[in-house]
Nucleic acid binder design. Structure first.
Lengths: 234, 234
DNA sequence: AACGTGTTCATGTCTACACAAATTGGAAAC
DNA sequence: GTTTCCAATTTGTGTAGACATGAACACGTT
């Protein structure tokens, strides 16, 4: 029962509280002691307790309301915090040698489905880039991307022979809003060819739409090689 | 040039800094002013600036290092903060009426692949639950789950006729570590039957492994109906 | 030129205190 | 009994100041 030298810090408090939740000492819906009381128990200031509890709440463990106090969430909507990987990093992390190859790149009027999807003006110019990503010369991902010229005029000067459109965009356009969708689709002739699959094979597919301050920037469809698994821990 | 009444708060500082990044005023890799300087500019204490900048760093906009200072991340590894939805919520959010149906539930010795996957002891008992989730009587998800009895002894008393194993677990077991994997697989006879699909159809599939303080709790494989899209924004 | 070594500076965290904001719960008024 | 309103409580956020930590940089030695 030491009173002040418990190897403190808000991290210690966080961990201790988490342990009490996970051990069942503090069941779901339990009303926890107030910050004041915890500050006493941990012999620190309320500020420190506040930081610990605030972060636990942000991470989805606790629910806090003024005057009502803090309670353990019963049906925790845990937030998976999965980082969107860049293909190059993903490949290299898995021990492969990354290789990029441009298939085609041309600026054309947006097709109707893209106009509808991104709420463009009819005929607005878009650069259509198709390319492949390899891991040690095995197909890894086939990418089919449209970049809206008006939102990113620099795209007309970009040379996608040497750099992938995603890496180029990330370097060129500042932070954006993203909508990411995953699905299972069926390999058509083209995709099957590039990924070296039988036609009609299931393909893990991701769609990515990016905006910059309300302006549509790019639409990308990415087809992953057979057996691809996207994993996240939390 | 007011000096103190700028509608302050760490939120205001966060937004202002974000605006400067997104407007291009502070380009990627730019070294930002120190907390001291920003505190002067916003006429507040360093503590307040610190909170704003710390949160922006947590959100993936900035990179901070002692002595080296704070800079704008060039290749932002944005973190998708997607909440794992419970099937019921997902269905109801989409306007459907949720219905659950148990297919089978029995406690048996763990099959070898599960022993290997979760590092169990050979023959450790597991409850195998198979069930369906419907949205207004349309198949939505087929779930095939194993629950390790030793880690969750209460499972022997659970009645999965009325409550789904996921909802039951969330109510019963406190917070856990989760590994979630998404993939595209091919519908076998069983899955195709339950989801009312042609055999060999691509199926969006999720695997979920859950641990409680190092102990394996459950392994679940979830097969989604045709056309399922998992979307997240950030 | 290469290698430690120590200074310096930006961020990380804490104390101690204060007031604001939200909301509960009960007292007072009807 | 019902409604209204006030006071108490709890979290949210701020100020002011301090020391800790880690990394960059300059300096001096080899």
């Amino acid at each position: 029962m030491t009173k002040s030298n418990d190897a403190m810090g808000y991290r210690y408090i966080k961990q201790t509280v988490l342990d009490r939740i996970q051990s069942g000492e503090w069941q779901p819906d339990t009303l926890l002691p107030s910050e004041q009381d915890l500050a006493l128990e941990f012999s620190c200031t309320r500020t420190t307790v506040n930081r610990a509890m605030r972060e636990l709440a942000e991470e989805g463990y606790l629910q806090r309301r003024r005057k009502a106090g803090t309670r353990v969430l019963s049906a925790p909507q845990r937030k998976a915090n999965f980082t969107i990987p860049m293909v190059r990093d993903e490949v290299e992390a898995s021990g492969g040698a990354y290789r990029y190859a441009l298939v085609s790149a041309q600026t054309v009027p947006s097709p109707d489905w893209l106009v509808a999807r991104l709420a463009l003006r009819p005929g607005q110019a878009a650069t259509h880039v198709r390319c492949m990503h390899y891991s040690t010369n095995t197909p890894y991902q086939y990418e089919d991307r449209w970049i809206i010229v008006e939102s990113v005029p620099e795209v007309e000067q970009a040379d996608f022979k040497s750099i992938g459109p995603n890496e180029w965009l990330v370097q060129t356009v500042p932070f954006t809003n993203v909508e990411l969708t995953f699905m299972a689709s069926r390999a058509d002739e083209t995709v099957a060819g590039f990924l070296d699959l039988p036609k009609d094979e299931p393909v893990f597919t991701a769609e990515r739409i990016t905006w910059l301050q309300g302006q549509p920037v790019t639409f990308a469809k990415m087809y992953f090689a057979a057996g691809y698994r996207m994993t996240t821990q939390f």
